[in-house]
Design a binder for these strands. Sequence first.
DNA 1: CTGAAAGCGCTAACAA
DNA 2: TTGTTAGCGCTTTCAG
Lengths: 334, 334
Amino acid sequence: MPQKKISIEDVARRAKVSITTVSRVINNVPTVSRKNRANVEEAIAHLKFKPNISAQRLARGYNNSIGLVMPGYPGIFYSFYAVELIRGVGHACETKRLDLVFHITNGDNPMNTSNVGGIIFADIIENRKQVESAIAVGTPCLIINNKVDDLDVSYIAVDNNVGGRIAADYLVSLKHKRIATITGNLNTQAGLHRFEGFQTFLQEKNVGLPEEYIFKGDYSRRCARTAMKSFLELPNPPTAVFACSDEMALEAVAVILEKGLKIPDDISIIGFDDNPACLFGSIALTTVKQPLFKMAEESVYLLSSIMGGKGKFKKRIVLNPELVVRESCGPCRS
Amino acid sequence: MPQKKISIEDVARRAKVSITTVSRVINNVPTVSRKNRANVEEAIAHLKFKPNISAQRLARGYNNSIGLVMPGYPGIFYSFYAVELIRGVGHACETKRLDLVFHITNGDNPMNTSNVGGIIFADIIENRKQVESAIAVGTPCLIINNKVDDLDVSYIAVDNNVGGRIAADYLVSLKHKRIATITGNLNTQAGLHRFEGFQTFLQEKNVGLPEEYIFKGDYSRRCARTAMKSFLELPNPPTAVFACSDEMALEAVAVILEKGLKIPDDISIIGFDDNPACLFGSIALTTVKQPLFKMAEESVYLLSSIMGGKGKFKKRIVLNPELVVRESCGPCRS
DNA sequence: CTGAAAGCGCTAACAA
DNA sequence: TTGTTAGCGCTTTCAG
């Protein structure tokens, strides 16, 4: 418990004013004489005084920190998704000068929801209870990337259904008839919606999606490899594949190239995310871009406005993904 | 400023005891009668009471939160390095039940060093000043991945010099004579040391390292591509390449394969990091493993002990990297 | 085993 | 423009 203890009082003494005046300059209250302000500032600098945030928070009665709770399942951190969220939230907190309290949890050891001014839940896989508890104690909160309509809570999400449709649409416009997909984790809202959108669009266009063209994946490279191999061994292999994440797409690309096939001549492939890692490698990947970073940033601004607002209001935002055409898809040749 | 206000007093009233007793049960002080404890616990549960951390911290005079300061240069988040640090620190904080306050900064907008119990600096690129200021106010701090011997501060780092030597040693043991390297950012301690270790070892073994075999990179895939292409265009191309990060190694692999060459038959390649992404793809990468996650975890334990310890003590730990042999290196054939 | 009371460092009326 | 004075919610002596 080191921590020196230069308090507002020490500053006041040195500047020969009351602590109130010191508090005023700390908080940029204009009604302080030029002279006093200068003295106080000198004292602060001289003593290297930093206000004690705990005391400030206690006295002010509110808290300018926000919690970011992320599901703790293994592998979460290797996903582009998680990294983008952290980046976005982190960046927005910097500009908003909010403290970011970072919390990884699998459901046990929940975050103490009353020690932050607000909470952002990055998806909710196993921690619905925490959300409920946050709502119960009245802490403003918001959910990223999961449309939770049965709880009285704000959220900001991407329309994954539309994302799936975009992929299907593009492939169909290229005249592909034999289209396969490697899905994401279907227990996930995002994974499920992407698949549903994809499937529905194909149905609408009367393009079949037989069982053997559907591989239920989990976003891992391993499953993508298995999936792509099995597709290639089919008597009638697909001419196009929609992988529900760029990472899986990349692995699929590797498998295809290993077999000596050409992309996009022999087979087209489209990913999902717009992971910058996919700009490099042999083939620049065509993909469906998710505004992850933006979504994360927005979540902070939104939460911050909720925290500042008087009444508790609720807001729900759904962002649209968009197609990014690069080199990995071409017209159907067979 | 919503936030309900169920305080210790409400609990005390309901449990018909004093706030002191409530405080005792919150803090697991044993001297509370069975009955009172039960009552208090009931009241806490019923009222959904959560202690106000700001008040606790203020009263206790110390702070069980630690700050993680990361440099904010662009691209930092796309590095395996940064992600591993966040993972490790995050995980350790979970188990230690410390609050993690996450702070990204380029040097402006420094973290208020006196609002956390301790600080971990992830590398120090542009924020030496912050470290000095933390030391000045007496906040315990520790630096990850940078041996800072001219400041009175603890650190935990990887011996990158040894890492470079390991790579060189392995390649030499495979009888390679024409060995090239794509360095990391040489303005970085890690990048510089890896290169130096590599170069020195080669010298010791009398293996030449001509200028054209040294490409000064920056950890980006782009530079790795440029580097590898230039190596391949040399009249006397190298038979082995040491890339100072797995990501660069991966890009180099891609370039080699695109040229129709074989790995490791035509050319061997060794990376640095042990990024799991490199287990997949066409060739499993041989690499030098850095204990990043472990280092990050350890940093928390170490800092935590410093925070708990009476006197300010200092500790410096250097971890060794190790060779991970997979498929991308083979004996020299020419 | 329990409670009264004195702060922790700061903010925010309220007076002056 | 300035200072006095209550608290904010909790911990912690110190008496009982």
